[in-house]
Amino acid sequence: MSESVNGVAFVILAFASIGGAVGMLTTRNIIHAAFWLLEVMVAVGGLYLLLSAEFLAVVQILIYAGAVSVLMLFVIMLTLRRREDSVRPVEVSIGGGILAAVFGTVMYVAIARYGDRVGEMPIVVPDTAALGELLFTQWALPFEVASLVLLVALVGAVWWSREGDDR
């Protein structure tokens, strides 16, 4: 039974994530776009859960849905001067279209050529403790580099937002 349940859940989540992305791109209202993005993030979290990546799913919800999108909405709402400003015309840009076409082609070719080289799923899913141990031993350096990047972004944001001559 669980196979078919997983299948149904996968179809729902796949449609939710792709549909949400389409909704985000086509809506004219920037607030709606932010909420569509949130929906995509939650749906992707659900896909992680289907892959038994429990920790990743929970962190996805906590960080992306719970914090990043709240901040994004906060920024949008603080910078809108009037409520009506949230509705924008859809801008069609040639450069963007070309970029999307190139990206789509590259992804298609990559998946067509190397799509079958997916690693075997482990029978026993490693638990959170094992993941943490791996992250802080074998992958400690990339982990620290990632945190350093975030720190630089943080300091940069503070520096930019300071007003006056003292910066």
């Binding site: 920790f55 929970v58 919800i61 906590l62 719970g66 909405l73």
Partner: peptide, 19 residues
């Protein structure tokens, strides 16, 4: 396995409904 983190994660969605 991640019960504590899970509870905080789902509660962190509440502010979005508020917004």
């Amino acid at each position: 396995d991640t019960g504590l983190l899970y509870t905080f994660a789902v509660l962190s969605v509440v502010p979005l409904g508020v917004i």
